[in-house]
């Protein structure tokens, strides 16, 4: 017994290390297998409430530019409301509320913590379960695409930014309608890459890239960026396209969480395909 105690006393340090290291690795494995693990969501809640306070101070510095973005968006939306249109077709349907069914709803949120200089970047938003945010909802800003929620706690949600190696949103060229995938290869936070765009259809520098609406996270037509340069990859027959993001992720402050009412139905329908 005394030997055992001596043994433990001597090597406790190594045991403690293995214990702590093991715990850390356990948390990492939880992260990657279950999006929305309990530990992440507790940590999220704590970090969120602290960041919320510091954000209250730092957001004064960006008030000007956020205001500008919001005003611009307001003006655009004002142009879309009914009162700014003159009715030309008087034969329009009477009960047009049964013709349209709302597919997307938006929850406004504020970014309270973010990273942009890592290989994999995340945001924390100040809206959580209580406000209707759920995992796998898309997040957009007035300027364009932002990311996808991967974890929610009571009051906060964690967003995987498009500046992440696992983020591969489906996009399309607004002019040619050809779709592809957006990837980010690290480094510059204002430049991304498009892959899977067949090189048979000509591109132009300055083409606008928008979300395709194929993935149910984002509505169709959300701005992504503009093509800055492109090159044919001889081996594969695809373009390698560089784009400049329309969103300045460094200044990001107010965003919208996208709630898709048809998502479940869509997932149910496509579930069988994935299983095969």
């Amino acid at each position: 017994m005394r030997n055992l105690i001596r043994f433990l006393k001597r090597y406790y340090y190594i045991f403690l290390f293995i214990l702590l290291e093991g715990f850390a690795i356990y948390i990492i494995s939880q992260n990657s297998y279950y999006q929305g693990s309990a530990i992440t969501s507790i940590a999220n809640e704590t970090a969120g409430s602290i960041s919320n306070r510091t954000q209250n101070i730092s957001h004064y510095f960006t008030l000007g530019s956020s205001n500008e973005a919001l005003v611009k968006e307001n003006a655009m939306l004002r142009g879309m409301i009914e009162s700014s249109y003159v009715k030309y077709q008087h034969k329009a349907f009477q009960h047009n509320d049964t013709i349209y069914k709302q597919q997307f709803e938006y929850i406004d949120a504020k970014v309270i913590q973010k990273t942009i200089n890592k290989r994999n970047n995340y945001f924390i938003l100040n809206k959580g379960l209580l406000h209707g945010a759920r995992a796998n909802m898309g997040v957009i800003s007035p300027d364009g695409i932002v990311g996808v929620i991967i974890n929610v706690s009571q009051n906060f949600s964690l967003v995987m930014s498009v500046l992440h190696q696992d983020s591969r949103p489906n996009i399309k060229n607004s002019r040619t309608k050809i779709s592809g995938t957006l990837v980010w290869e690290g480094g510059n936070y204002s430049a991304g890459k498009l892959v899977d765009i067949p090189s048979s259809i000509p591109l132009k520098i300055g083409d606008t890239i928008i979300t395709s609406g194929f993935s149910q996270d984002f509505p169709e037509g959300i701005s992504v960026g503009k093509i800055t340069s492109f090159d044919k990859d001889k081996g594969t027959g695809f373009y390698i396209v560089d784009i400049k993001f329309s969103v300045d992720y460094n200044k990001l402050e107010y965003v919208y969480i996208v709630k898709n009412f048809f998502k479940q139905e869509h997932e149910k329908l496509t579930k069988d395909i994935k299983n095969e």
Partner: peptide
């Protein structure tokens, strides 16, 4: 540090090794 950067465990595991 992990708590504020979204991906829990990474800084933790690496720094514990440095402590070791």
């Amino acid at each position: 540090v992990d708590m504020f950067s979204g991906y829990i465990g990474l800084h933790c595991a690496v720094l514990t090794f440095i402590g070791f």
